[in-house]
Each structure stands twice: as C-alpha cells, then as structure tokens.
C-alpha cells in the first residue's frame, strides 16, 4: 500500500492564516489514494471539522476523535502555497463551489494527493458550514499541480 522514498523526515514550521503555527515532521512518502472511495468532511463556517467519514480517518492517519473539533488546516502540507487556500476561501465565502488539487499532510508526516471540491452548506438561507469531498486525482493532474505550486511558494 505505501510507497517509501529514501528521504528521511524533515521538520517544518507551518504558519496558519489565523496567526498560529506548528512544527511538523514531513516525510517524502506518498500514500496512494484508494480506488472508489470519497473522503468526506464537514466544517463549521470557521473551518472547524464537525464530520469525518471513515475514508478521511484512514487516509489522514488521525482518529475521528482527533479530527472533530480541529481546524481543517491541520491537513495542510508545507508544499501547498498559502495562495491556493486563499483562493479556496474567497470562492466558498462568495457562496460558490471550489475545485482544486491538494497535497494533504498525514499525521505521520506522509502525504496524499486529492481532487477536492468544497461547497457552502446553506440552510434556510443561512450559511451553516462547508462540505468537502475528495476523490482520486490522475497522475498527470498531480504533476501539473506540483509544478504550479512550486512556482507559487
């Protein structure tokens, strides 16, 4: 299941938009996206995780209890440029659907690529949160995204 490159772990500090930061161990090991599955999560309007399905638990390496109540940004991989997430928030806060390719960080420092879609959840005209659904991306889209994100760092 896991493919392991020879590079050892490196410690990276990630700064989040809300001013907080954390230091993570990052390893250059990709966990392949499982065929046929969708990773599903929901957050409140501030991005705090309120729902996680089993595929999310399996791929992130966190337990469901660890995920619920955390900010969705704990999945942010240091290789992802901040501008990509700024675009995401700008889109969904305007009430529209966002699609993008994202490199996610697992709890163990490895990574997995997804094609993500995020939509606002509106009930009786009021925004109550967001639903994010991730699916398997093609290798060519991953390669394109890697090249693009490297220029945006």
């Amino acid at each position: 299941m896991l493919s392991q490159n020879s590079d050892g772990p490196r410690q990276v500090q990630i700064d989040y938009f809300d001013g907080s930061s954390r230091t993570v161990d990052v390893v250059d090991r990709e966990v392949p996206y499982p065929d046929g599955k969708l990773i599903v999560s929901r957050t409140d309007p501030q991005g705090i995780i309120t729902h996680a399905n089993q595929a999310f638990v399996d791929m992130s390496g966190y337990t469901k209890e660890e995920l619920i109540g955390e900010n969705h940004y704990i999945l942010r991989h240091p290789d992802m440029p901040a501008v990509a997430f700024a675009g995401l928030w700008e889109t969904i806060m305007a009430g529209t659907k966002w699609h993008g390719y994202v490199k996610n960080l697992r709890k163990d420092g490895a990574f997995y690529w997804v094609k993500a879609t995020v939509i606002p959840n509106v009930r009786n005209g009021k925004l109550v949160g967001y639903t994010s659904v991730r699916r398997k991306p093609s290798r060519s889209k991953i390669a394109e995204s890697e090249a693009l994100y490297a220029t945006l760092k």
Partner: peptide, 13 residues
Amino acid sequence: TEFMIDLIDTLID
C-alpha cells in the same frame, strides 16, 4: 437529506 444533497452537489461539475 440535506447532507446527501450537498454531497451530490460536489460530484456534479
């Protein structure tokens, strides 16, 4: 029901 509809919405481009 709303959750299922939201999810389907994410699958339609």
